[in-house]
């Protein structure tokens, strides 16, 4: 019978495929690291051009105190930018949804903010704002637009008949927003969050890069720039690895959050047979 809850037991073929999906990327990673190490050794490439993965790993351990401090700084900026982006993006979308006039007046400027390259705005923000605020502003500007755009789309995707039903039963504006529009928009909002998570990290890094030229800051991006000036390439690689890992963790954390929020009802989060 279609529409029945999916059987909890995963067929063997499915499980094998699941395992492959986890295993294959790991195999590719291991092989790449091996080839990387071999090339560096065979060609005797100096570490200030390309350090081998072993050296990068040793540097990561040796410089952990320094790098972990920087990681925390960058992550805090990212998190703050992300939270502001979510609050700002969802808030603006709701505001636009409640008033056509406000939407027409301000939406174009949200787009302009989005399409202007953040690298170009960062120096200006650093002139205007204290450094921490400027870095945060960068993270926010980059990350808030996908939340705004997705939430707007979601709020406008309400089933017309459901909207009629709410009208028939005399629902207030607030009730329509809280009980119809926001739940209907939730899958879209969560999609926006997944994009915004990665983007707020990018925004934070770009701003730190721009700020580091002014000689301040201690985030991971600053470490990368600094290592570059000092030709400490192994540390540069170690910082890069940390940034990638942070990005991956952010992405998967948000994907998991999205899945948990939607698993009871949304098609995107419901597993299917076959």
């Amino acid at each position: 019978m279609n529409g029945d809850p999916v059987a909890p037991v995963m067929p063997a073929r499915n499980r094998a495929e699941h395992a492959l999906r986890l295993l294959l990327p790991v195999v590719v990673l291991a092989l790449s690291v091996l080839v990387w190490e071999l090339i560096v050794r065979v060609r005797e490439i100096p570490p200030y051009v390309l350090p081998g993965p072993g050296l990068v790993f040793r540097t990561l351990i040796a410089d952990w105190a320094l790098l972990s401090d920087s990681l925390v700084v960058t992550l805090i900026t990212t998190l703050q930018g992300f939270v502001l982006a979510v609050v700002g993006g969802v808030g603006l979308a709701v505001l636009f949804n409640q008033s056509r006039l406000i939407e027409y007046s301000f939406y174009p400027y949200a787009v302009i903010l989005q399409v202007t390259p953040i690298v170009a705005i960062a120096p200006l923000l650093l002139v205007w704002l204290p450094q921490e605020a400027a870095v945060l502003a960068c993270a926010w500007i980059v990350a808030f637009f996908p939340v705004l755009a997705n939430t707007t789309l979601g709020l406008n995707s309400v089933d017309h008949n459901l909207a009629d039903l709410f009208r028939l039963y005399g629902a207030s504006r607030l009730q329509v927003l809280r009980r119809l529009k926001l739940p209907a928009a939730l899958p879209y909002i969560l999609g926006g969050l997944k994009i915004a998570g990665g983007l707020s990290l990018i925004g934070a890094v770009v701003a730190e890069m721009a700020a580091s030229s002014a000689g301040a800051g201690s985030g991971l991006a600053y470490r990368i720039a600094e290592s570059g000036y000092r030709l400490n390439i192994p540390r540069m690689f170690a910082a890069l690895v940390l940034l990638s890992v942070a990005g991956i963790v952010i992405y998967f954390a948000l994907a998991l959050f999205s899945h948990l929020m939607l698993r009871r009802w949304h098609e995107s989060a419901v597993s299917r047979e076959g």
């Binding site: 008949n161 459901l162 119809l180 739940p183 209907a184 949304h266």
Partner: peptide, 10 residues
């Protein structure tokens, strides 16, 4: 309605 028009989240 012609469709069940249920809220999928509830």
């Amino acid at each position: 309605f012609q469709e069940p028009t249920l809220m999928p989240w509830a």
